[in-house]
Computed example of a mutant assay.
Amino acid sequence: MSMTFFYARVSTTDQTAAHQRIQAEKAGFTINEVVADEGVSGVSTKLADRPGGSRLLGKLREGDTLVVRWVDRLGRDYQDVTDTIQALMNRRIVVRTVINGLVFDGAAADPMQRAVRDALISFMAATAQAQAEASKEAQRAGIAHAKGRDDAYRGRKPSYSRAQLEAVRAQLAQGASVSAIARDTGLSRQTVYRIQEDPAEAEAALARWSA
């Protein structure tokens, strides 16, 4: 009997695997088992080297479906993501994403279908890496901006957490609407607009209030 696994990787204390599962179920997925890595960075650690990732790879069997929130959950960078998805497809495991409802299936036999599928994998992996690099750059700029301000002036305390800020940036990069992002993150539309208009200041506000 085939199984549907949901893999969650959360790298900050205010994210939870349970929240990601709820998002997947709201998107229409029926999950048989959840495997998670919490407090694990996806930037420096391959899927197979994470405790949960290693356990997941040992559980998956031919015909199973693996659901992830987005392809960046599966690897550190472009090459790692594409290699991981290809290896899963070679095992006849279907990979599906919650965001955008993408499906990567190794059973495709038609050369044109395979070409389109592989091109999409490459594009999505490249997008994930570009978003991660943009997030790191915005964070560096925000911290530098915060350090350049008078320490006695911190301004209004941010109404969002680190996890919410990262979620907003990720979904903006994927083309999600402000209204949809607000619903998903629990933030107001005005807050999402502010983050969209000045991501460096959004980072700076978190940095000023981190102490």
Rank of each mutant, 00 (worst) to 15 (best):
R92M: 06
T185D: 03
P111E: 07
K136W: 06
I121K: 12
G155H: 02
A141V: 01
S179R: 07
D151P: 07
G106W: 00
E133D: 08
S179H: 11
A163I: 08
S122Q: 08
A108E: 12
R114P: 14
I93S: 07
R156I: 12
E133V: 06
I99H: 09
A141L: 07
A107P: 14
G101V: 02
E137I: 05
A176L: 11
S177H: 08
Q139G: 06
Q139M: 05
R114K: 11
T97P: 01
A141E: 11
A138H: 10
I181Q: 02
A115R: 12
E166V: 09
K157R: 11
V116E: 03
L120V: 04
Q131K: 11
Y160W: 11
A107Q: 11
S177K: 00
S135F: 12
Q164F: 01
D105C: 15
D118M: 11
Q131A: 11
K136N: 13
I93W: 00
T127R: 15
A108Q: 00
V168W: 04
I93R: 06
P158F: 06
A138G: 01
A109Y: 04
A119P: 15
N100M: 09
V95I: 03
S122F: 03
I93Q: 00
D151Y: 03
M112S: 14
Q139A: 06
R162T: 07
A134S: 02
Y153W: 11
A119V: 04
A138W: 04
E137N: 15
E133A: 03
T127M: 15
A138N: 10
T185H: 07
K147Y: 00
A108I: 13
L102G: 02
R92N: 08
R117W: 05
R149P: 06
P158Y: 10
Q139K: 07
Q129F: 15
D110M: 02
G175M: 07
Y160H: 11
E133I: 03
V98L: 03
R169S: 01
A126W: 10
G186H: 09
I93K: 05
F104Q: 11
R183H: 13
I181L: 00
Q164N: 14
R91K: 09
D184I: 10
A144N: 11
S159R: 15
Q131I: 13
H145C: 11
D110A: 01
G101C: 09
R162F: 04
Q129H: 10
G101F: 06
G142P: 08
V95P: 00
D105A: 15
M124V: 14
A167S: 14
